[in-house]
């Protein structure tokens, strides 16, 4: 993994296994929240992306106070080294990592391959014991707005063309054939994509075992094949901002693009706005 631009944000299952009782804090974030209860890495706590990482009233990530409360109750201190993992190729784990980074917790990493890889390796223990960590007083010292895009930022790029836009949804969502994947309740008023966006479905970045592809493969996928330009600022988006956190992670940390933002309003916001330009 040393090949990546910022290798310190990604750790292997073996790395985690060797440090299970070393004081690192492990957090599981799944799409399917039943998975944690059935068995998880010993010592790991679980965050529920629907109820704990999103504001329950307005559409937003959780506020500063809620983040402090959530992380403090999980026994995590400001100086702790946090490792996040989850199902579905770390999809929602990457979203949680983005929220941690947004609230200024720098020492946070993803476990490469997520829970599927851990399950595949017979030497890796699983438990159903839910830990009861001693609560801490966690204080957010500042936010990191540079990693978050709002719709004004996206419209600015549409107007000036001065940044890469990466649409990480499926090809059918990008083309406007469907507005959302089948069965999704959150949707938009219109199908299509932001003008100028390049289409690279998020899952293109991972190997069959759930680990990230090599840096050379990722460079080919994003730079050579999709036409993402290396030196430019970049905004990644999807439907509700979770899948794009995964691509945000790839572009920012594995490929080292200078200024990458996740647009968490994503298509459910953009595709519902009056009068904004849409391409199909």
């Amino acid at each position: 993994m040393s090949e990546y631009a910022n290798p310190s944000v990604l750790v292997s299952t073996d790395w985690v296994h060797e440090r299970l009782n070393s004081g690192i804090k492990i957090v599981e974030v799944d799409v399917d929240t039943q998975q944690y209860g059935a068995g998880h890495i010993p010592g790991a706590v679980a965050f529920d992306w629907t109820t704990q990482l999103q504001d329950q009233t307005r559409r937003d990530i959780i506020g500063k106070d809620e983040f402090e409360q959530l992380v403090g109750a999980a026994g995590i201190s400001n100086d702790d080294e946090v490792v996040i993992y989850g199902d579905n190729n770390n999809w929602f784990a990457a979203y949680a990592l983005w929220v941690f980074k947004y609230y200024g917790h720098d020492n946070v990493k993803l476990m490469n391959g997520g829970r599927s890889k851990w399950l595949d390796e017979e030497d890796k223990p699983l438990t159903t014991d839910v830990p009861s960590p001693a609560p801490t007083t966690y204080t957010v010292k500042g936010t990191n707005p540079a990693i978050r895009a709002f719709v004004q930022d996206v419209l600015g790029v549409v107007k000036d063309g001065n940044a890469n836009l990466v649409d990480v949804r499926s090809h059918d969502e990008y083309s406007g054939k469907v507005i959302a994947p089948p069965g999704m309740s959150e949707t938009a008023q219109r199908g299509g994509h932001v003008p100028g966006a390049k289409s690279v479905p998020w899952v293109t970045a991972v190997n069959p075992d759930g680990t990230f592809k090599s840096r050379a493969d990722l460079e080919k996928i994003y730079f050579q094949d999709a036409g993402v330009i290396e030196g430019k600022d970049t905004i990644a988006y999807c439907r509700i901002g979770e899948r794009s956190s995964h691509t945000w992670f790839v572009l920012k940390y594995l490929l080292g693009l200078p200024n990458v933002k996740n647009y968490d309003g994503s298509w459910t916001e953009y595709g519902s706005m009056i009068g904004v330009p849409i391409e199909r």
Binding site: V31, D32, N88, W91, S116, S170, P182, G183, V203
Partner: peptide
């Protein structure tokens, strides 16, 4: 399983 529209992944 409908929560996981992710081609190529093992099912939930």
């Amino acid at each position: 399983d409908d929560l996981c529209p992710s081609p190529g992944m093992g099912e939930g």
